[in-house]
Design a protein around this nucleic acid. Structure first.
Lengths: 95, 95
DNA sequence: TTGTCAGGCAAGCAGGGACTTGCCTATGGT
DNA sequence: ACCATAGGCAAGTCCCTGCTTGCCTGACAA
């Protein structure tokens, strides 16, 4: 299992998570198109695929093969390792 | 303001956060000693100091100068940016 | 069956990040 | 005044990582 923190280190990978969070189950080409159109991310298909390798290795993205399409699904569960490790104070009003 | 995600990408920096989470307000030399003794981290003083630069730049650590000592304080508030960005499902029992 | 489309695989290149080395500043003790 | 301590600053080295380039596989349609 890969490193969740290293997977989050790259801004392009974080934008990929944003996109999958907005529309889950995209295909690679669809993801590339939307990254370019809505997030001004001009990464090549191979670059995005390699980012997906890292994200899938960290458990943040799952690949579901179906025919000649590979659908990408977001999984935010590994992020719990972060908040479990260092408790974050709740945003209380500070008078 | 630096990048919180990049700051978390390095395992030594995460161990530093662990140490400060266990005992807040340490000094640099004390931190180095405890990193070596309790976490088997054999980083030099300069290396740890450079890690602290990154952590402070991300807002995860605050430096408080007092005489010739610099006390280090943990601040987990920037971590909220992570969970706010991608909502993490609560661990419910799946029957 | 042949062409096209979605995607994978692998080598090579270039920039960034972690660490070292060496030197410098300032505070406090004696 | 002097020296040890706590820490900072800067240049150099090495390796990892992100990206490109080029080619290959497998599925569907005509």
């Amino acid at each position: 299992m890969g490193d969740v923190f290293k997977a989050l280190a790259d801004p392009t990978r974080r934008t990929i998570l944003d996109e999958l969070s907005d529309r889950d189950g995209q295909t690679l080409f669809e993801l590339c198109a939307r990254l370019a159109a809505r997030h001004q991310v001009a990464s090549s298909r191979q670059a995005v695929s390699q980012h997906l390798d890292v994200l899938a290795d960290a458990g943040l993205v799952h690949r579901r093969r179906e025919g000649r399409y590979t659908f990408l699904h977001l999984d935010t569960a590994p992020l719990r390792a972060i908040t479990d490790r260092w408790p974050v104070p709740h945003p209380e009003e500070t008078p």
